[in-house]
């Protein structure tokens, strides 16, 4: 059975477990080194990136997550995207893992009263797309992307969903709207979307 880890240092990990469960996939909370053994993928959830960054180092998880990400897919939502990024423009307190070649600007969409839901189009590959609701909560903005990274969807011409052939980073929270397409694409080998990821990358 496929088993996906959800980093449980702080944040909104519960709803990711629910999405994985509803897809019929196994899921497991990750709090220490040993928890990463034998997993097929990892989710870094939303929450506070400062808190998670501190705890990644307090619990000595940095190198293990980096090693894991070389072999297995990682999905990051909001704070998860910040942690996956290569560089954060406006914050020195968070030490990003650098496993996705993007630059982000933290809280660039504003404080909580600016948080909102938007309708966006997500490109699953070169010929398939789907409209979804995207909930942005004190969201990070993607301000730069490496050549291997492609945008799957944009708000006001700024990418909010990016894919590098292996990992996905999102500015928004699909788990709050019970959207499972990204989980399916990365982790669920029984889903049609799982095969799209190879095409998608080739198309780019």
């Amino acid at each position: 059975m496929i088993e996906v880890g959800v980093l449980e240092l702080q944040g909104n990990f519960e709803l990711h477990h629910k999405i994985l469960y509803d897809l019929g996939l196994g899921s497991k909370g990750v709090k220490c080194l040993d928890d990463l053994n034998c997993l097929d993928g990892l989710i870094i959830p939303g929450g506070e990136s400062t808190t998670m960054s501190l705890l990644i180092d307090s619990f000595n998880l940095r190198n293990s997550i980096l090693d894991f990400s070389k072999k297995k897919p990682v999905l990051g939502t909001c704070a998860g995207l910040i942690l996956m990024s290569k560089k954060i423009e406006n914050d020195v307190k968070v030490k990003p893992l650098g496993l996705l070649d993007v630059v982000v600007n933290r809280n660039a969409y504003g404080r909580q009263i600016m948080s909102e839901k938007k309708q966006i189009e997500i490109h699953l590959n070169s010929h398939a797309s789907v409209d979804i609701k995207a909930t942005l909560i004190r969201a990070p903005k993607i301000t730069g992307m490496g050549k291997k990274v492609i945008s799957m969807g944009k708000i006001d011409n700024t990418p909010v969903a990016v894919f590098d052939g292996k990992h996905i980073g999102l500015s928004f929270h699909p788990e709050l709207d019970e959207i499972s397409i990204f989980h399916e694409m990365l982790f669920d080998s029984s889903s049609k979307l799982f095969s799209y990821k190879f095409e998608n990358f080739n198309a780019a």
Binding site: E8, L9, Q10, G11, N12, F13, E14, L15, G46, G47, E48, T51, C78, A79, Q112, S115, E116, K117, T135, I137, R138, H173, L176
Partner: peptide, 16 residues
Amino acid sequence: NQFDIKVGLAEMLKGG
């Protein structure tokens, strides 16, 4: 929607 977004931030504060 607006109530969901408010609860959404509360969700992000969990486990902290």
